[in-house]
Simulated assay, not measured.
Amino acid sequence: MSAPTRGRRPMSDRRRRLQRLEISRAAIRLFVEHGVHDTTGEQIAELVGLSSRTLWRYFRSKESCVEPVLSLTTDAFVDTLRRWPADTPLEDHLVADHHLPDPATAEDGAATLAVVAMSRHEPALRAIWLVVYERAEAVLAEVVAERLGLAPDELAVRVQAATLAAALRIATEDLADDCAAGRERPREEGLARLSAAVRAATHGVLGDLPT
């Protein structure tokens, strides 16, 4: 008989994603309260009940801890595009598809906007923010390719995916600037601005209908 295996059981991919998201939320909370410069990796680890050594196995720097929460924005946008009916104007679809968020989703959205606002004067956060959108381009290319009936690696598809990512990034940055300045906008207006950004980026190539 073989000897029993010792040590901890391997962490599942789902549990690892949840652990990274928990760390991300904690890091952003500390960044908002104390600033990026005055927040340490040790403080982030302590807030989630981990050792610093474990934290650094998940993230290469304290600034990179924000990545999981930021990625929720691109993930949600991709999911929305996947559900976009071909015969429906994008703005109508955005309004219909974006239900009122639950408290956890709303909190993550506010955290994202806080990080984006801070990234204006925090180069390390800005770098992470841009990386998130660069990684989203490959997934967006799959969505664009399916809608246009083309291959994801075709140049036209990749360019459309890149412009879509840029449209979402710019719309989010504008919203973050508004929130940081205390300018609250109605939810419908934010969705309309996102729709306008997508139309400007794609020039109707994805089949958007005039509203």
Rank of each mutant, 00 (worst) to 15 (best):
H93V: 09
H93P: 10
H93Y: 10
L94Q: 14
L94I: 14
L94T: 15
L94K: 14
V95Y: 13
A96L: 14
A96W: 12
A96Y: 12
D97T: 11
H98P: 00
H98G: 00
H98L: 07
H99Y: 01
H99V: 11
H99C: 06
L100Y: 01
L100T: 06
L100D: 12
L100G: 04
P101V: 12
A104R: 15
T105P: 07
T105F: 09
T105C: 09
A106Y: 06
E107A: 15
E107D: 14
D108E: 15
G109H: 13
G109F: 09
A110W: 04
A110H: 13
A111Q: 15
A111V: 07
L113P: 14
A114E: 12
A114T: 11
V115F: 11
V115R: 09
V115K: 04
V115M: 06
V116R: 03
A117W: 09
A117I: 02
A117F: 06
A117R: 04
M118L: 13
M118H: 06
S119E: 11
H121E: 05
H121M: 02
E122M: 00
E122W: 02
E122S: 03
E122T: 08
E122P: 02
P123I: 00
A124M: 04
A124T: 04
L125H: 04
L125M: 01
L125Y: 02
L125F: 05
L125E: 01
R126N: 05
R126M: 01
A127H: 13
A127V: 09
I128V: 15
I128E: 12
W129F: 09
W129C: 01
W129Q: 03
L130S: 05
L130R: 10
L130E: 12
V131N: 10
V131F: 04
V132H: 03
Y133W: 13
E134P: 00
R135E: 13
R135A: 05
R135W: 00
A136K: 09
A136L: 11
E137K: 15
E137R: 15
A138G: 04
A138V: 09
A138K: 08
V139L: 11
V139Y: 07
V139C: 02
L140Y: 13
A141P: 07
E142W: 10
E142K: 14
V143H: 07
A145D: 08
E146H: 15
E146R: 15
E146D: 15
E146C: 08
R147M: 06
R147N: 08
R147A: 07
L148K: 11
L148R: 14
G149C: 03
G149H: 09
L150F: 08
L150C: 08
L150A: 13
A151P: 00
A151E: 11
P152Q: 08
P152A: 12
D153L: 00
E154T: 03
E154D: 06
E154P: 00
L155W: 08
A156L: 13
A156Q: 12
V157Q: 08
V157E: 10
R158T: 08
R158G: 00
V159Q: 07
V159R: 11
Q160E: 12
Q160L: 14
A161L: 03
A161N: 02
A161I: 04
A162H: 11
A162T: 09
T163S: 01
T163N: 05
T163R: 03
T163D: 02
T163V: 05
T163L: 05
A165D: 05
A166H: 07
